Simulated scan of single mutants.
Amino acid sequence: MSTPEMGTPGRTIVAAVREVVASIPAGFVASYGDVSRRIGTGPRQVGRAMGLLDDAPWWRVVYADGTPASCHGGRAVELLDEEGTPMLAGRAQMHRARHHWDAPDVVRAGENYVVVR
């Protein structure tokens, strides 16, 4: 997937955030900062755009320390757990769960990871 560029004519930050968030696979997360670096804006702008989305997996975007969003009645932890995201004490384990767009496609198979080409 190419990087969504904010400078593309007619492209809004909300559209760029939606595209990036939709590309985070189930079982993985990205921080607000990860998303912001991907589209060339700041993490607070990503947070604001996330508040306007209702059609993207919002629960896969977490704080830098792995703390999930508290909106939507605090359902993020439940949704991340259902997807098999590595969690510890209510936080995503960022060293295991962080999605890297420049890495090969990876799927989780139990506690193991499988590279898909």
Rank of each mutant, 00 (worst) to 15 (best):
D34C: 09
V14K: 00
D54E: 12
G47P: 12
D55Q: 09
R18I: 01
S23D: 14
I24W: 04
D55K: 02
Y32E: 07
E19K: 03
I24E: 12
V21D: 09
G7N: 15
P25A: 03
L53M: 01
G27Q: 08
I39M: 10
L52M: 05
E19G: 03
I24M: 06
P25K: 06
I39E: 05
I13V: 08
E5M: 10
V46K: 04
G33P: 12
T8R: 15
V14E: 11
E5C: 06
D54M: 06
S31C: 01
R11N: 12
V14I: 12
A30P: 07
A26M: 11
Q45C: 00
P57D: 00
Y32I: 00
V29T: 14
D54G: 03
A15M: 06
P9N: 07
I24V: 15
T41N: 09
G33C: 07
R48E: 14
P43C: 09
F28P: 01
A30L: 13
R44K: 05
G47V: 00
G47Y: 04
V20W: 08
V17K: 05
S31R: 07
G33K: 13
M50I: 07
D34V: 01
L53S: 02
A22M: 05
T8N: 02
G27D: 08
V35W: 14
L53F: 04
P57L: 00
T41C: 15
G42M: 14
A49C: 11
V17Y: 04
P4I: 03
Q45G: 12
V21G: 09
A56T: 08
G7Q: 10
V21P: 12
D55E: 09
G42H: 11
G10T: 05
T41W: 13
A49S: 07
M50H: 03
P25V: 04
A30K: 00
T41H: 14
A15T: 01
P4V: 11
D54S: 06
A49W: 05
A22I: 00
F28A: 09
Q45D: 13
P57I: 03
Q45L: 09
E19H: 04
G10M: 05
T12E: 07
M6C: 07
V46D: 13
L52T: 00
D55C: 10
V17I: 07
G7C: 14
V21T: 12
R48N: 02
V35M: 02
A49E: 09
M6G: 06
G7Y: 09
V46I: 02
R11T: 02
I13C: 14
A56G: 02
A16C: 13
A56F: 01
T8V: 08
M50T: 13
P9F: 15
T41K: 11
E5T: 02
P4Y: 05
R48Y: 15
T41A: 10
T41G: 05
V20Q: 02
I24N: 11
V46H: 15
S23I: 03
A26G: 08
S23M: 06
V17F: 10
A26Q: 14
A26Y: 09
F28K: 11
A22R: 15
G42I: 04
P25F: 03
P43I: 09
M6A: 07
R18L: 01
I13L: 15
I39L: 13
V46G: 05
E19T: 12
